[in-house]
């Protein structure tokens, strides 16, 4: 953030939205859900690279683009779809976990434009044009990310349910310069809960990556 950060250029709204009665909407949605069950990912089309165009659509469906783990996608969903549900249900990226669905546990942590956020408290359409990285995109092919290596080395998990969120958060925490001490890590990783109580080992793993000077 600088004093003179330019604001996002936004093309004008093209006015294609329209109002509908709730009942008609409900009927149409039921149909949409029915057709949904036939094909697993009917929304996916590879997008041609484009600019930050405003999403278009109505209360049933909006179209927008996202880059997910380096792949640019043109998507179409009900505007109520959270980023978390889009990743898991529509893109089949189930590495990102749903713990609470209300912003309280951190299991759904992903990176948006390199920053850690909670996928459960964001509508997918609002991320239009942004770059999403999930746990599936953290390793480089077969080479694990140093943070993943460190979690294995220090036993930073038990059941593993919170682990994708912990890892995404840990990588960010380091990038944010908030992993300088045990106390620092405890404070700045507090948004990721672990029912198994693997906290001490998670802290050790992060400190190891930090002091090892590995490139996170």
């Amino acid at each position: 953030m600088t004093d003179d950060k330019p604001d996002d250029p936004t093309p004008p709204d093209d006015g294609t939205f329209f109002e509908q009665s709730d009942r008609r909407l409900f009927l149409k949605q039921s149909l949409a859900v029915a057709s949904l069950t036939l094909s697993p990912f009917p929304f996916l089309k590879t997008a041609e690279p484009d600019s930050d165009e405003a999403p278009v659509g109505n209360a049933e469906k909006v179209s927008f683009t996202l880059s997910v783990n380096g792949k640019k996608l043109r998507l179409s969903t009900d505007p109520r779809t959270t980023l978390l549900d889009l990743l898991r249900e529509q893109l089949g990226l189930t590495g990102t976990k749903k713990g609470c669905d209300f912003g309280q546990c951190g299991a759904c942590t992903v990176h948006v434009d390199g920053q850690r956020v909670l996928a459960c408290l964001s509508f997918a359409v609002m991320q239009n044009g942004r770059k999403i990285t999930t746990i599936e995109g953290l390793a480089k092919g077969d080479r694990l990310h140093p943070m993943q290596e460190a979690f294995i080395k220090h036993d930073g998990f038990q059941c593993g349910y919170c682990t994708p969120g912990q890892l995404m958060s840990a990588v960010s925490c380091l990038r944010e310069g908030r992993a300088n001490s045990e106390a620092d890590i405890q404070e700045y990783m507090s948004g990721n809960l672990c029912r198994c109580g693997a906290y001490p080992n998670i802290v050790k793993a992060i400190l190891d990556v930090k002091t090892g000077g590995q490139n996170a």
């Binding site: 936004t10 093309p11 004008p12 709204d13 939205f17 329209f18 109002e19 709730d22 909407l25 949605q29 405003a54 999403p55 659509g57 109505n58 209360a59 049933e60 909006v62 009900d78 505007p79 109520r80 509508f123 359409v125 609002m126």
Partner: peptide
């Protein structure tokens, strides 16, 4: 959750 229409205005006045 109730359905809603999503709009993204580009000016303060419009919003």
């Amino acid at each position: 959750m109730k359905p809603f229409e999503y709009v993204r205005p580009s000016t303060l006045q419009e919003a």
